[in-house]
Design a binder for these strands. Sequence first.
DNA 1: GTCTATAGAAAGATAGAC
DNA 2: GTCTATCTTTCTATAGAC
Lengths: 193, 193
Amino acid sequence: MPYTKEHKQKSRERILESASRLFSHRGYAAVSIDDLMRDAGLTRGAFYNHFSDKAEVYAEAIIHAAMRSARAVGKATESSSLESLHDLLSGYLSREHIDNSGHPCPLAFLVTDVGTREFKVRESYTRVYRNLVRLIGKRLPPARAKDRREAIMAVTAIMIGGVAVGRALISATLADQLLASCRSAARRILEQA
Amino acid sequence: MPYTKEHKQKSRERILESASRLFSHRGYAAVSIDDLMRDAGLTRGAFYNHFSDKAEVYAEAIIHAAMRSARAVGKATESSSLESLHDLLSGYLSREHIDNSGHPCPLAFLVTDVGTREFKVRESYTRVYRNLVRLIGKRLPPARAKDRREAIMAVTAIMIGGVAVGRALISATLADQLLASCRSAARRILEQA
DNA sequence: GTCTATAGAAAGATAGAC
DNA sequence: GTCTATCTTTCTATAGAC
């Protein structure tokens, strides 16, 4: 047996790693399977031994990208406090995230892209979104359940919207104003919740 | 002269009309020039008599879509009051806007799509965004300039983020919770500004 | 499991007739 | 100005050798 099970697993990991990075940065349609596999150090033909089609790798890449991004932004911190939430917001709503993040958040970088794709892709996106809501909720001091959930969801829209729009804008100073406005609004909302 | 200047203008309008609708709904890459022209009642070959390439029609379609959308959501109302702002928010952050709008807001429907395109496309997007900021500002009662601008920009992120994410989510009830949360958070922010 | 080769479809852009 | 026809490139997906 020239190829072990571990070898296949390693290849699969490399493909997913390339996929989450490339799709996030260039968009789904702009990345061909050839690009993907070359980036992963393999060739086109090997692709279909790991995934049934392009949509499948996309759906999985979204999950993968979310985990990598969580680690990068420090979302994985388990401390439950307003402090840690502020850190999360500062990291997320930052120029660094927009320009130099090797692992940006797929929720922000792929919002529009996902809306028109096949079911399994939007399913992945939804799962990652629910996770963000949960993650913020765990760090928030207890309060009335409904207001809390409302506040959290509004904050997710600010985070995702702020980064997505900031990335689209051609003016860096305008984008920076937007990011700063989002940070301070999000903090206020969470403090009141 | 078999074709008048007005005729060319009419064709151009029809192409832009088709472009803003199709790009918004399906995304830039998923719409071919063939689709575009067929929708406008013309054929492929005629396209290049109106635009130099696909990116150019995209840049112009974003502007066009923004004007149509403004009329649809009632953004064009000139009354300057918190009332009219609430109407704007209700129309924008609605299921109707996400599902059945013939003329959705390109800021929300094309955010991600724009980030990786050519300069002129992002330029159009930025122009439309500045316009939204201005439009909200005109309807807001006077206050300290800086806080006002911060509030306005945070609200734009909530609007765009709420609609964009709501469209991506596979669960309608989750999306509706998100929309409601965004509406109430945006109102609170504007009332405090 | 990964490779090369290729089938088959689609898209952007151009040429020339009317 | 708009049409049909076509060049050229690119892409997804499959086939078959190793």
